[in-house]
């Protein structure tokens, strides 16, 4: 049994392949999707998507947020922006984190959507930096 994983960006279909398990970064925590998972729609925070085959990670992608739709046999990730782990750049990530932190400090907490956008950005930037630190 496998999960049919699809990763789609607004511009194109990036990846469609069957995997044994995929771990996606849901807003409320990482989700491991195995075949037969209950139907679920979730938003994603910035983080890693890990593809598993034969109990080993075969591919890792960094997603900067988006949505995922899970059914018993399928997992569809609608990604905002996505890149391979190898394409991440430590310097860019650090700059982005600094900018996101600055924005987050300035944002008006009463403005719910602006506050959410700023905190999403901060989480994404932090996740990017953490991922890179973990890798090196």
């Amino acid at each position: 049994m496998t999960v049919a994983l699809e990763i789609i960006s607004p511009e194109r279909l990036l990846l469609a392949r069957p995997v044994d398990m995929v771990v996606i970064p849901g807003t409320e925590g990482d989700l491991g999707i195995l075949p037969g998972h209950s139907r679920l729609i979730t938003s994603l925070r910035g983080g890693m998507i890990d593809l598993y085959e034969n109990d080993a990670v075969v591919d890792r992608y960094f997603v900067s947020g988006g949505f995922a739709e899970v059914t018993e046999e399928r997992c569809t990730v609608l990604a905002d922006a996505i890149m391979k782990l190898a394409e991440l750049d430590a310097q860019d990530a650090a700059d982005e984190l600094a900018r996101a932190e600055a924005d987050y400090r300035e944002v008006d907490e009463a403005d719910a959507s602006a506050y959410r956008a700023a905190s999403d950005r901060l989480i994404t930037a932090q996740a990017k930096v953490d991922t890179l630190a973990e890798r090196s």
């Binding site: 849901g26 807003t27 409320e28 139907r39 679920l40 729609i41 979730t42 938003s43 739709e69 959410r116």
Partner: peptide, 9 residues
């Protein structure tokens, strides 16, 4: 579908 987070956000 289960919705997560389910607070409308």
């Amino acid at each position: 579908y289960e919705i997560e987070p389910d607070d409308g956000s």
